[in-house]
Every structure is written in structure tokens, then in C-alpha cells.
Design a binder for these strands. Structure first.
Lengths: 199, 199
DNA sequence: TAAAATATGGAGATTATCTCCATTTGTCAA
DNA sequence: TTGACAAATGGAGATAATCTCCATATTTTA
């Protein structure tokens, strides 16, 4: 991914410091209350260094988000390996909501990245989307989930949940409701009628 | 709603000019490429006037969005009056996607307002939510839609679709997919089993 | 260990946002 | 009408955020 240039020792150190500071601020929910330059001070580096490593606020958020997404992608892989496809998908989606609820950082970041024009969500978003795509594909393959809807739709819903985080007082309940709707909507074929309920 | 003070003639004129300019820019998709002060120039008023009428960029977007939402709410009312509840809901949601596709202004604005922290979506959002709430309530009442999921969930999904507008190359197809999923998820009761399908 | 390559900090340039008030415009009562 | 009062205006400049630049410092390499 970033094997371009090996990055000098002090550079890596500073980058880490910046990321650590940003993560803290992000978790505290103050990400937008700070001047961008302040992240430099917080990390004990100069503003030049800040800008060299992360040209924009969004880039910084993206970088923090990256690790978080890696964790979630791993989780998706685990679930895929240990549960029936449909349950894995359900568990993953519910887990996303839990995660956003617990550390609002991710939710907020999703919102930020989405709000930013520019094709953000670059890396992290793609990794997440891939993970979701795999989960859905599994479930389609074993016939528990309809085949006529793209995983992209699921991503869009996830984005919506994240973006709404700070704006809806009853977020948690609504988010759970959305996942329920989504899972029920995904189940079985698009055709109406009725087949013996499996569960 | 805003019967507080009658607003002087020139004030109303300037406000309209500002709104007109903003609408144009919004429709062209340049809303974020402009300095906020530039809206004043575009409307032929001073910056002071701009700030007096719309203290922030978001307030301006909200005001433009307001009329658009009024139109949509009217549409919801019409549909409610002329179609069976479930069809009305479906038609409305599909119509929202059409609308966002045709004039990206609404989609973009939804995204903006959502991105803004502060309890934005103040008026317009509430009106829209009410319209959706009524549509859902009707459908619940006549038994075609499950009763265990709040209309807020539908709003969240709508927000997600709007927010994703600029970020997903295949937006239209995914948005349609989301609506399909949503409608199927909403149909009938949460409990499994099976009741004679009405349609 | 010295030269080359890389990275640093932070002072200021640049750009965007917002405030203030002397002046203009509109309203209303007489 | 008109005069007096209130409401609104515009835009110069204060304030604040973002970003650039480069003389200096650190790391790597040979």
C-alpha cells in the first residue's frame, strides 16, 4: 500500500504522535472544535510537520480511521470463518452499531469523510466495503440473502447510520431499527409471496 | 412560524436575492467552492446583509432547502390522499430518490446539514420527518407495515442516501437498492411465520 | 565520520470569516 | 406631504484559520 518510501525514523515518530493526538481528540468528540494547527501543538510537533504528514483535516481523520477499519475488517473475517453466512452478516452489522455507539469516533469519522467532497473514504472505506461485500456474497451464495441487491447499498446504509450519529437524539434505537429493517429486507428472494419461514 | 417581525420591504428583497443566488450555486454543485462572503456579491448585497440574514453557510443552505422540503411534504400529503398507504410510502421514497437524482441540490443539502454539528435540520428536517412519519403511520395502521420500527429509522436511511450522493459513483442504482431493501424490510410483521400475502 | 538526503519548526503570508457603525432606506403618525 | 423614528445597509477592517517556506537540525549512507 504505502511501500513507496521507507520514511525516516523521526518522521515515523512524529507521524505516530500526530495520530495518537488525533485519535484522542476524535474519541473525545472535539475533532471539529480545534484549529487544525492545534493538532501540531498537541502532538508536540511544528505545524509544518503536521501539514507535511496530513495535508488536510480529513486526511488526518482518514488515517486514524484506517486502523479502526482494519480492526473491523478482521472482525468480519473472523465472523465469516466461524458463523453461518447470514448470522455472520447480522453479527457484523450489529457489531458496527455497537462499535459506533461505544467509540463515537468511527461514526463521526464516517460522517466527516462522507461530508467532505473529494473521493474520500479512499483506503479505509474500500477495505470496509470489501469486508461487507464478502459477507454479503457468502450469504447470497448459500441462498439466505437475495442476489438482486448490491453490497454497495449496505454500505450506503452504514454510512447513513454513521453520519446521523450526532444528529439524532434517539440514535441508538433508530440505528438498531435500521439494521433490523436491512436484514429483513435482505433475507430471501425479492419476490413477495410466502415461503415457509425458516426462523 | 416566522411571524415574529414583519420584515421591511428592502430586507425581504435582499433576502430573496440571497436565496436565489444560493439556490443557483447549490444546484450547480459549487456551494462549497465559494467563499461565504461571495454569496453577498452574487446577490448584489453587502456582506453585512448576508450575515444578518444568514449567520452561517449552513443557515443559508437550510433556508434554500426549506422550500424544497415544503414541496416534498406536499407531495407526501397528496400521495397519502390518493393511494393505499403502502403504495403511498413506496411512491414517496422512490420519488425522493428521483428528486435527489434530478436536482442534486437536495441531496447535497441533506449531506451538508447532516455534516454540520449543531442540531441543524431544524425546521425543514422536521417537516420532512413528519411527512414520513405520517406515511409510515398510515401503513402501520392498515397492517401492511410492521409496527416495531420507528419512522426515525426511515429518516436515517434517507439521510444516508442523500449524504452518499457525491461519493458513490454508482449512486442511483445503490439508492434504488436501498429503497427496495427498506420497503421489503418494512413489510408485514417482524415475527417470521407467514400470513397470506396481500400482494 | 563526512556528505547527501530527509525532515523539522514556527514565523509570517494568505485567505476566509465575521463585526461594527456611519449612512441610507423604509414606515408611520400627524 | 413630511418629519421623526426604526430598520436595514454596505463594506472597510478586525479577527481568526489555514497554509507555505526555508534556514536549521536529524538521520542515513557509504
Amino acid at each position: 500500500m504505502n511501500a513507496a518510501k521507507p520514511l525516516r525514523a523521526d518522521a515515523r515518530r512524529n507521524r505516530e504522535a500526530l495520530l495518537a493526538a488525533a485519535r484522542e481528540v476524535l474519541d473525545a468528540g472535539d475533532f471539529f472544535d480545534l484549529r487544525f494547527d492545534d493538532f501540531a501543538g498537541l502532538a508536540g510537533v511544528g505545524t509544518g510537520t503536521l501539514y507535511r504528514h496530513f495535508p488536510t483535516r480529513e486526511a488526518l481523520a482518514e488515517a486514524v480511521y484506517h486502523e479502526e477499519v482494519a480492526t473491523l475488517s478482521d472482525r468480519a473475517r473472523d465472523l465469516r470463518a466461524t458463523l453461518p453466512a447470514e448470522e455472520a452478516l447480522a453479527a457484523f452489522l450489529r457489531g458496527m452499531v455497537d462499535h459506533m455507539d461505544a467509540y463515537q469516533g468511527l461514526a463521526r469519522t464516517l460522517a466527516t469523510l462522507m461530508a467532505t467532497r473529494s473521493g474520500a473514504l479512499a483506503d479505509g472505506g474500500q477495505a470496509l466495503e470489501e469486508a461487507v461485500g464478502d459477507l454479503v456474497a457468502d450469504a447470497v451464495r448459500d441462498g439466505t440473502v437475495r442476489a438482486d441487491v448490491d453490497a454497495g447499498a449496505v454500505m450506503m446504509v452504514l454510512h447513513g447510520i454513521g453520519a446521523a450519529h450526532d444528529h439524532r437524539p434517539d440514535w441508538r434505537a433508530e440505528a438498531d431499527g435500521v439494521i433490523t429493517l436491512l436484514l429483513d429486507g435482505l433475507r430471501r428472494q425479492p419476490s413477495p409471496k410466502c415461503i415457509e419461514g425458516t426462523a
